[in-house]
Computed example of a mutant assay.
Amino acid sequence: MSESWQGRTFEIEVGPVAHGGHCVSRVDGRVVFVRHALPGERVLAEVTEDAGKSFCRADAVKVLSASPQRVSPPCPVAGPGLCGGCDWQHAGADAQLDLKAAVVSEQLRRLAGIEVPVRVEALPGGLLRWRTRVRFVAGEDGRAGLRAHRSHRIVPLTDCPITTTPAVRAVLPHRWGPGNEIEVTSDANDEVHVREAGEQRLGGVAVQRAAGRQWRLSAHGFWQVHPEAAETFASVVADWAEASQGGLAWDLYAGAGLFAGVLAEQVGAHGRVLAVESDRRAVVDGEANTAGTPQVRWRRGAVERVLRDSRGRSARHHERPEVVVLDPPRKGAGAAVVEAVCRAGPQRVVYVACDPAALARDLATFAARGYRLDRLRAFDAFPMTHHVECIALLRRG
């Protein structure tokens, strides 16, 4: 294609939802990824990005025929050309669950060849004031905001309706160093922790609660963003792991030790849990959080490397884990880690995933090595955004 479509406006029929917070349409044989639209609508779409490939990106700047599932966004900067933090503020609560279920189902079918009914479950608390951790950025005038979609441009904010009130009040009314990132976390005690440009300004050690106990960790380290997510996910992991008393379990990408703690309770004092995590501070927090459970042994390092190195060590490391829990970053575990897990031969694998495409790719690798998907649950842990959390149970054979 020689002529760029950037800036052009088309009247289009909006097609199905796609992974990434947009819907798919076609104009003159080209795919157009349209934001701020819903399937079945007719809209005027302005092309915002065209790299000359088989697709381009556009915003729905005017709705000509609205879906019955369309609602007015609760945030005044949730629209074309504005804040990029949310994707689905223009969709009702049930519609958001349906959109995310369709995405998970499509990714599993296309990337893993798995046909399975998907229902996305809402977490308690509603669509607003759930986000406990945010990374704002200051503009040239020192006002904090968020970047526009696929842009470095900063949209200043006076509020962020999906963010907890304590976190909003700690950042948005104040001025910050121009260009600085401001990380804010509100913990289970509603204590606020603020770090600007890497320097701690307020707090630093967060208190969280899940799985019947309290957890202390670096305020800006890994913990679920939704206040109900950690408890919910720990409960599902406990139900599906079914580790035996005296058994061996692995917790890969262990973070601050939430799932290691769940597994430690199941295997008991005579069992063992191997917790693997690459982040130094997370390991320090995890060791402190599991100090009362000596059956948990921590290894710091990239999961792939730790598992590879363990194969060449003592016979003790060759014992087969009964269950492996893994909660990788957004890119997924990847083929090397999945293959290492399969070589270890656990009876069950519980996979916690924050990206359905990465999950589907890894499930395809598991399937090629004899592990089948037994159960799947999906949760709306990120309302108003396109993100969705899935937990998959795989069994060998």
Rank of each mutant, 00 (worst) to 15 (best):
E228K: 09
E265Q: 13
R281M: 14
E242T: 04
G221W: 00
N189M: 10
R272L: 06
L258Q: 05
A256P: 11
S278R: 12
S235Q: 15
V237G: 08
G212Q: 05
G204A: 03
V267E: 02
W176E: 14
Y253W: 09
A256Y: 12
R201A: 15
A241Q: 02
L248C: 10
A256H: 10
L274R: 07
A210W: 08
H226L: 11
D285Y: 00
A269P: 10
R201M: 15
L248N: 14
E183W: 10
D187S: 07
D279V: 15
G268P: 09
S278G: 15
D239G: 09
G261M: 00
A256E: 11
E183R: 10
E191A: 09
E277Y: 06
P178H: 05
G255C: 12
E265W: 07
W176D: 11
L248I: 14
D251L: 04
E191R: 13
R272K: 05
F233R: 11
A234P: 03
H193S: 13
G271N: 09
W223H: 14
T232W: 06
G255K: 03
L217H: 04
V184Y: 03
H226M: 12
A264G: 10
D239Y: 06
G221T: 00
V283H: 06
T185V: 05
R280D: 15
G203A: 12
V225P: 06
S244F: 13
G268M: 01
E265F: 05
A230I: 05
V236S: 06
V262Y: 09
L202C: 12
S235N: 14
Q214C: 09
R280M: 09
V205R: 13
W176L: 03
E277M: 05
N189A: 14
I182Q: 12
Q224W: 00
D279L: 14
G198C: 10
G212L: 14
G177N: 08
W215Q: 04
W223R: 01
N180H: 13
L263A: 03
E196Y: 02
T185Q: 09
Y253A: 11
V225D: 00
N189W: 05
N180D: 15
D187P: 04
